[in-house]
Amino acid sequence: MVANMFAIAAWRDPEDYADLLLLSDRHGLHRLALVQHHLSSRIEGDRRLLLGSRFCHGLAPTHYGDLAEDLATTCARVGMRFMLAGAHEVEPGPDIETPEEFLRHYLDDGLPEWRAQIARYAEDPWSPYARRLNELAEQAGLPGLDITIGRFMAEMREHTESRDREMVAREIRRLVTESGLSQRDFATRLGTSPSRMSSYCTGQVTPSAALLLRIRRLARAVTQPRPD
Rank of each mutant, 00 (worst) to 15 (best):
P128A: 04
G150K: 02
R189Y: 07
V205E: 15
R165D: 15
L136V: 02
R214Y: 02
D109P: 00
S127Y: 01
G191I: 02
E161G: 04
H159V: 07
M156Q: 14
L213M: 10
Y129R: 06
A122C: 03
R132T: 03
C201F: 01
A154T: 13
M156F: 09
R184C: 05
A187K: 10
L142K: 04
P207G: 09
P112A: 01
L107I: 12
H159K: 14
I118D: 11
G203L: 06
D185E: 13
T192Q: 13
G180Q: 10
G203R: 09
L111H: 02
N134G: 15
L211F: 01
R151A: 06
C201R: 13
L111G: 05
S162T: 12
R157A: 04
T148I: 04
L212K: 12
R157Y: 04
Q139T: 00
P112G: 02
P143R: 04
S195I: 08
Y121L: 12
A154M: 09
M156S: 06
W126F: 07
V176D: 13
T148S: 12
E138P: 00
L136K: 00
C201N: 06
M197T: 04
R131V: 00
G150I: 01
I147D: 15
F152I: 09
R157Q: 15
L212Q: 15
R163W: 00
G180N: 10
T202W: 03
A210M: 12
A169W: 04
P125C: 01
R189M: 11
G180Y: 06
S127I: 03
Y106R: 15
G203Q: 12
I172C: 10
A130L: 05
P112H: 03
S208C: 07
S195W: 03
L175E: 14
S195P: 06
L111Y: 04
D109A: 13
L142Y: 03
R184N: 11
R214G: 04
T202C: 02
S199H: 13
Q139K: 12
T206L: 06
S162Y: 05
L190W: 07
S198M: 11
W126Q: 08
R165H: 07
G203D: 12
G191S: 09
Q139G: 04
R165M: 08
I118C: 03
Q139A: 13
R170Y: 03
A209W: 09
L107Q: 15
